[in-house]
Amino acid sequence: MRDMLGLMKQAQAMQEKIQEMQAEIERVEVEGQSGGGMVRVTLSAKGQLRNIVIDDALMKADERQILEDLIVTAHEDARKKAERVMEEKMQSVASGLALPPGMKLPF
């Protein structure tokens, strides 16, 4: 019975850590770039698009396709960075838990 109480306390502590981490992730922003920084995309760590900055040199009608490709590439760069931030945060939350091998958070 004592083990069950300990498990419940551990689960409650983990839930609190996850809630804190989720609130922190809402504030974390990552920036992806392409075209040598001519296109920059800012995302929340959860992947919400917050901002796009485009260098004036790319604002030419005949370079529309290039600009579109650079935006997609910058977004992908930011998305990958956001995923890494999420993984790092989840690892820090799970570090104190004795999870079975191969089990990852969130479940």
Rank of each mutant, 00 (worst) to 15 (best):
Q10I: 03
E29Q: 11
T42R: 14
R84S: 15
A23W: 06
A78K: 14
A82E: 15
K89P: 03
M8T: 05
M8G: 00
S44K: 02
R27S: 09
G37A: 09
K81F: 08
R84N: 15
E87T: 02
E20C: 02
A23C: 08
A11L: 11
K89F: 08
I71H: 09
E16L: 08
D56F: 04
R27M: 02
R64Y: 06
K89W: 13
E24T: 10
I52K: 01
I66A: 11
E24N: 11
R79E: 14
M59Q: 09
V72F: 10
G37K: 04
S34I: 06
E31N: 05
E68P: 08
T73F: 12
D77W: 03
H75C: 11
R27K: 15
E63F: 03
V41I: 14
M86R: 12
R40T: 06
M8K: 04
R27I: 00
Q48H: 09
G36M: 06
V28S: 02
Q10W: 00
S44T: 11
A11M: 12
I66P: 09
G35Y: 06
L43V: 05
A13R: 15
A45H: 03
L43W: 07
T42D: 06
K60I: 14
E31F: 00
L49P: 00
I71C: 15
E63I: 10
S34C: 09
K17L: 03
E31P: 02
L67K: 05
E68L: 14
L43M: 07
M38F: 08
E26V: 04
I18G: 02
V39I: 12
Q22C: 06
A45Y: 00
R64A: 13
A23M: 05
M59T: 01
S44C: 07
G36H: 06
I54N: 11
Q65L: 12
A82W: 07
Q10V: 04
E63M: 15
G36T: 12
R79W: 15
R27Q: 09
V30Y: 03
D62N: 02
E29P: 00
V53H: 08
Q12D: 11
Q48Y: 10
E76V: 02
Q22A: 13
M59H: 05
G35N: 13
R64C: 08
A11D: 13
E29S: 07
G32N: 03
M14Q: 10
M8W: 12
Q10R: 07
Q48G: 05
K17V: 01
E31Q: 01
G37S: 05
D56K: 10
I18C: 07
A61G: 04
D56R: 08
S44E: 07
Q12I: 07
E87V: 06
I54Q: 11
V53F: 01
I71Y: 12
E88T: 04
V41M: 08
E31W: 00
R79D: 15
Q19D: 14
D62M: 01
I66W: 04
D69I: 13
E87C: 05
V85K: 04
E76N: 14
K80H: 15
Q10C: 02
A13M: 11
L58N: 08
M21W: 07
Q33P: 02
E29L: 06
D69M: 15
Q48V: 12
Q19Y: 10
T42K: 10
E16Q: 15
Q48D: 12
A45P: 01
E31S: 05
D55M: 05
E63K: 14
Q12P: 01
A23I: 06
